[in-house]
Design a protein around this nucleic acid. Structure first.
Lengths: 348, 348
DNA sequence: CGGTAGAATGTAAACGTATTCAAATAACTT
DNA sequence: AAGTTATTTGAATACGTTTACATTCTACCG
């Protein structure tokens, strides 16, 4: 790499002091138009790129934000990530992602890395209900925002979907289609998304006076295999559910796989609803009815909030943002859409 | 945030000079065991985290690597990204991703951002055949590595799949299944992946003395809709192809959608092969025969290469790495697997 | 025990910017 | 035109490390 000019060189070449050059570079006021132009000309002519490291050293602001999420490969998270990335760029921030695979050790490693890199703040997109790392940051006053999943132990900023409401809507929809025995594939109960969706499901049953059968609630881990397994278990019961609500789309995909294997038709034999509306859910040969959340927007909102918090000078009051869920009705729930849609029957 | 101790404080507290502290921190030799321990104790007791910015300023090494790819949301790229991320972490590097949507302007913006951030090197995962940005970096001796797609205009490092071979294998497979009219949905011809896969397809036809019909090659853009459109066009021909080879999986998914809509069965009516082996291809209700590439590994290899290049002191000779493609035979091509697999027939 | 090589430690100068405060200059005011 | 105020400019310092070089210790030798 060729040699780089410094602010000193520019100052010398323009016949001014480094302070003036600095002021010009940062568009600070208090420099005469004439000299401003002169300095700019020199910069254009000889080329200059300020050394952001030196700048960061003195300003103590890196404009970097760390993001921990469980897996960038997971389409759910990659959409959030994209929202974060795009929005960050707009505000002049750079982001570093860390995929933890929901592992405490790797999360800790990334949090340490982020702090070593002197990030201005951190976004957690996949926090657990008990999270020592986050609580530590809270105590130490490091700015952060939770996204997607929240935490009850501390009062802090978050942007999440109203998961209770979303699950309620999904269950309600199945109930209104006439289902009385609705199997629920639960997410991990150490995540707010897991417990909230379970709560929503139960609330709907209660509201419509439908008896709760414990055997209709299977635990899953948000991964496809667990949906697959749960569905097979459902189907081996003496009286299986007539509908299944999987608390995320991946598990719903597992259900589809299992159904295909068992020769069970969705939705003709069993209705199915998912949660999240990941990309694949909308493919015609999947056509999964699901509770949608705007993942991109969630990421964008999250980083907006974080940046506001970082840049705010006054005492910050934590913001709790709940996004509205939408039920997207496709083929897998068996709802008969009016008009010409779904003329070809169900999925598969 | 509470006040941070500096190397000076530690030096004072341990009764040594800053140079010694620095040596301890960096595990440099030339400091007596006794003093090393003393310094470490002080650090443990009072807590200290070195300011990496100051360090970077003097060493001129940021240990940051920029990655430009077309879209982190695209499962193909997110897998590459994950490979890069994990491997980078192992080597003590941090990575910044930039999603360009294959846009020249955004790519330029990100390259500028990366340079402003003083990254040690850059990985391009979605370079075009003519790419002024990359050629400029090449001239200016900025270390970079191409991954996934390559460039003919300059001699540089890359890690790509042998796309010609891969496409050849796919086409050959269809030929051996007895197909004579194989529709090809081409990728953009301004990417090496586009042209190489086309070349592989043609080579196979030639090798097996199958006549090439220009109308059997439709242009696509690697996106689902274009596969959808191309398939519909094929099906409106007087004599449509009996098999379709889409040069990536997304376009193959488009084909599946179109087929579903037209009531055409895959593979019974028309055989289908894709390329890339994105996650979704392996789902049972998709079951797409495809040319697999190890995306994670490609990313990991790419960054390994880049780091080696960055850290090498001798004159660097560009490395050209071709990864081997594998044909993964699933349901969509109509190949009858022996044994118990696919007992349920084709897709859908 | 004096001398000396080698190891351990310290001193001081970078690295490239932002920023405070004082000095210089320009712009008004009367 | 002198005095006053506002605006521009510059000098100097700080940010927190690393590192070349000088100095001091230590240990070993004859």
């Amino acid at each position: 790499m060729r040699v780089e000019l410094t602010i000193k060189d520019i100052a010398r070449l323009a016949g001014v002091s480094t302070a003036t050059v600095s002021r010009v570079i940062n568009d600070y006021p208090g420099v005469r138009e004439k000299t401003r132009i002169r300095v700019k000309k020199v910069i254009d002519k000889f080329g200059y790129q300020r050394n952001i490291l030196a700048r960061k050293l003195v300003t103590k602001k890196t404009s970097i934000i760390g993001v921990v999420l469980s897996d960038i490969t997971n389409p759910f998270y990659s959409e959030i990530a994209r929202g974060i990335e795009d929005e960050a760029r707009k505000w002049g921030y750079t982001v570093i992602f860390g995929s933890t695979d929901n592992t405490r050790e790797i999360q800790k490693e990334y949090v340490n890395l982020f702090r070593e890199q002197r990030v201005d703040g951190i976004i957690f997109a996949s926090v657990a209900l008990q999270d020592p790392d986050v609580e530590k940051l809270f105590k130490e006053d490091v700015p952060f925002v939770l996204v997607n999943r929240k935490l009850d132990t501390i009062k802090t900023d978050f942007v999440v979907l109203d998961n209770v409401k979303g699950a309620y809507m999904a269950a309600e929809h199945l109930i209104k289609l006439g289902h009385k025995r609705i199997g629920f594939i639960c997410g991990p109960l150490n995540y707010s998304t897991g417990v909230d969706r379970l709560r929503g499901y139960k609330e709907a049953l209660r509201k419509y006076n439908i008896e709760e059968y414990p055997e209709l609630v299977k635990s899953g881990n948000f991964r496809q295999e667990s949906g697959y397994r749960a569905f097979k278990e459902f189907m081996s019961m003496k009286s299986p559910p007539t509908a299944v609500f999987a608390s995320n789309d991946f598990m719903a995909l597992g259900v589809l796989e299992a159904a295909l294997e068992l020769g069970i038709r969705i939705p003709e034999d069993i209705a199915l609803v998912g949660f999240d509306d990941i990309n694949f859910a909308s493919f015609k040969f999947v056509s999964l009815t699901t509770v949608a959340q705007r993942k991109y927007e969630m990421g964008a909102k999250g980083i907006q909030l974080l940046i506001k918090k970082i840049e705010s000078s006054e005492r910050w009051i934590p913001q709790e943002i709940y996004l509205k869920p939408r039920l997207i009705i496709r083929g897998s729930c068996g709802y008969k859409l009016s008009g010409k849609k779904r003329k070809k029957g169900g999925v598969r």
